[in-house]
Structures are given as structure tokens and as C-alpha cells.
Amino acid sequence: EVTIKANLIFANGSTQTAEFKGTFEKATSEAYAYADTLKKDNGEYTVDVADKGYTLNAKFAG
């Protein structure tokens, strides 16, 4: 089991951190699915991958 950390950075400057656990593939998929649920209210996002894929920095356009 691994933990994927998602740093969510919103256009207004606020941030949120979420963690997803499971296999690498499952946890990564859940992190992206969570970011997708936030698109409606926060706009499209881009992701910078860090820490060999164990940290995802998602920046929302607003």
C-alpha cells in the first residue's frame, strides 16, 4: 500500500491537502478523480508530479 498526497492549489490562493491510499494505480486514480469533482466550481487544473509520482500538485485555474 502506498499513499499519494494531493496538494490542491486554488485560484484564490487557498490550498487543501488530501491523501489517497491503496496500490499506486488506485491511489493515483482516486486523486485525479477527486480533482475532477472540484473542476465544476474551481475550473480546469494542471498537475505537476513530484516525489516520483507520490505527490501531485494540482493548480486550479479558477
Rank of each mutant, 00 (worst) to 15 (best):
E1H: 12
V2Q: 05
T3I: 13
T3M: 08
T3A: 06
I4R: 02
I4P: 00
I4G: 00
K5D: 01
A6P: 00
A6M: 15
A6F: 14
N7A: 05
N7D: 02
N7Q: 08
N7T: 09
N7Y: 11
N7E: 05
L8Q: 00
L8A: 05
I9T: 11
F10P: 01
F10D: 01
F10W: 05
A11K: 09
G13P: 00
G13S: 05
G13Y: 04
S14Q: 14
S14D: 13
S14A: 13
S14I: 14
T15Q: 10
T15P: 04
Q16G: 08
Q16M: 14
A18N: 07
E19C: 15
F20W: 05
F20S: 02
K21P: 04
K21Q: 10
K21A: 07
K21L: 08
K21D: 04
K21V: 12
G22I: 02
G22Y: 00
G22A: 04
T23A: 07
T23Y: 07
F24R: 06
F24G: 01
F24E: 04
E25H: 09
E25D: 11
E25K: 08
E25A: 11
E25W: 07
E25T: 09
K26T: 12
K26Q: 14
K26Y: 11
K26H: 11
K26G: 12
K26F: 11
A27P: 02
A27T: 02
A27F: 01
A27S: 06
A27H: 01
T28S: 08
T28M: 13
T28H: 06
S29N: 12
S29L: 14
S29M: 14
S29F: 13
E30N: 09
E30M: 13
A31V: 08
Y32A: 03
Y32E: 03
Y32C: 08
A33K: 11
Y34C: 07
Y34S: 01
Y34G: 02
Y34V: 03
Y34T: 02
A35F: 15
D36G: 03
D36C: 07
D36P: 00
D36T: 04
D36K: 02
D36M: 03
D36E: 13
T37W: 11
T37D: 10
T37S: 15
L38R: 06
L38N: 05
K39R: 12
K40F: 10
K40I: 12
K40H: 11
D41V: 12
D41R: 10
D41Y: 12
N42T: 03
N42M: 13
G43P: 01
G43E: 03
G43I: 02
G43F: 01
Y45G: 01
T46L: 09
T46H: 10
V47W: 09
V47P: 03
D48I: 14
D48N: 10
V49A: 07
V49M: 09
A50V: 14
A50E: 13
A50C: 13
D51H: 02
D51Y: 00
K52F: 15
K52M: 13
K52N: 15
G53L: 00
G53T: 00
G53P: 00
G53S: 04
G53Q: 03
Y54F: 14
T55F: 05
T55R: 02
T55N: 04
T55P: 02
T55Y: 05
T55I: 09
L56H: 03
L56P: 04
L56Y: 00
L56G: 04
L56F: 09
N57K: 05
A58N: 03
A58D: 04
A58K: 01
K59Y: 15
K59D: 05
K59F: 15
F60R: 00
F60V: 01
F60I: 03
A61G: 13
A61R: 11
A61Q: 14
A61L: 13
A61H: 13
G62M: 06
G62N: 08
G62I: 06
